[in-house]
Amino acid sequence: METIFLLVRNVVFVILIAVLIEMLLPSRETRKFVEVVVGLFVMITILNPIVSFIQQEPSIELEVAEGNEEQLQQILDQGQGLQQVQAAQAESYYGDHLEEQFAVFACMVPGVEKAETRVQFATGSSQDEVGVIERIDVLIKETSLTAVDPVEEVTIGAESGEVIERVETEQDMLAQVQKTVASLCGLEPDAVVVTLE
């Protein structure tokens, strides 16, 4: 209805323009020519919107825009649910790999034969808090402190004077595991809890 109203209004204006131009025309030879061109002008301005209207494709966007709000909210909720599931899956995968890596690093400390780690992530709703490590529990399962002689002091390089710390007691070993794992992931040592089975 709106389209037809606009079309009729436009036609009225175009006819008005054409009549005014015809009034201005000279009265001799060229008049016929200008009249033809004015006629074509009227034709094109009337036909153009009609053809566009006829060949108009059905608008899908309109249907989506006019869909009911409940349905839209439902879709948005489902989207959020999917996002949360994906985030949880990604965090789980990431946590498993981190735990494996930390266990390997813990085993690098002299005296540790087998270790298990468990990573706890920060719980927050914002995207920035996803994957932030809050706490690491290291469980040392097997040690070789009794079987191995205390490690002797070894100097690496001629000038550095770096010394590998000696591991003599279980407490030293636990402290070193804590320090290694904490420094590896940039955490405070308190956030890494090392226990011996």
């Binding site: 606009l6 131009i21 020519f33």
Partner: peptide
């Protein structure tokens, strides 16, 4: 107001001037 391309009007005015 008629939402017609102004190019057509300019052409018509030029034709009128030539005539």
């Amino acid at each position: 107001k008629a939402e017609v391309d102004e190019f057509y009007l300019l052409t018509l005015l030029k034709i009128l001037g030539i005539a």
